[in-house]
Amino acid sequence: MIDSLLQILSSTLRVSTPLLFAALGGLMSERSGVINIALEGLMLVGAFTGAIVAYSFHSPWLGWGAAAISGVLLAAIYAASVINWKADQIVAGTAINMLALGMVPFISKILYGVTGTSPTIPADERFIFAPIILVWVFLLIIHFWLGRTPSGLWVRFAGEHPKALDAAGIGVKKVRWGAVLMGGALAALGGATLSTMLSSAYARNMTAGRGFMALAALIFGKWRPIPTAMACLLFGFTEALQIRLQGVVLWGTEPVPVQFIQILPYLVTVLVLAGLVGHSRPPKALGLFFEKD
């Protein structure tokens, strides 16, 4: 009993790591006022880039670096669309997800002749636990940075009252660009963690909705770093539980349908948003295009 509990806990910590990376990415972007539905696509691209670079150069760290860069590049397309060209953030975010879904197999086909799985990374060239520690370090850094530094303040004002930021002489668009790019890197790192730590290769659509789950965690966490991390742990726990409960008979004669556990995080989010479990207020300028009059 204790054994399986410990197993579930360590598994929780592992599976919540990619979620937390992505959620932090979402937090960066959304606190600056830019909705980030594109987390899913950013993760996917990060997972792919991380896996193939780690495999090719025999280093998960290089894979990680490359993933971060790929995230920044994809996020740049998004940032240009919504910050400069006034694209609707939800529409453009959806498009970025589609772009990622299409580009990855396209490139995979060119590189490896297949659209599905990338070559397997040998066990000693994968991460064992480094990302788990790093993500919590990042969390603390972001927490203090938002609260205690001028640029953290800028990001918060960009999301809450961009006109005030502008009146203070700081470019809203610049701040948002920075936040969205950072967010892209973080989300991509989440994806890379998925392919270089939790598994041994990139597999088609391996993010499987984790980007959206990260978004849910961000809302559950009221757009604040520490509570968001707790939400990620909670969602990670349901995922760990689901792996653990597969085929297990809890009551009656049938195993618990896995679907019920799978939908839990989404259900929790709907209930939270409905104010049935706490209340969550988004940044005031979230989703709004900013232009100097």
Binding site: W154, R156, A164
Partner: peptide, 30 residues
């Protein structure tokens, strides 16, 4: 300039609102 619609963000403290415009490095501690 004091704008007609104040340039103050509701959920943040008065102090944070004043420090928004402070000069110096972007990543130093406030």
């Amino acid at each position: 300039m004091v704008h007609q619609h104040f340039m103050l963000a509701g959920p943040y403290t008065a102090l944070e609102n004043i420090l928004l415009g402070s000069t110096g490095g972007a990543f130093r501690l406030l």
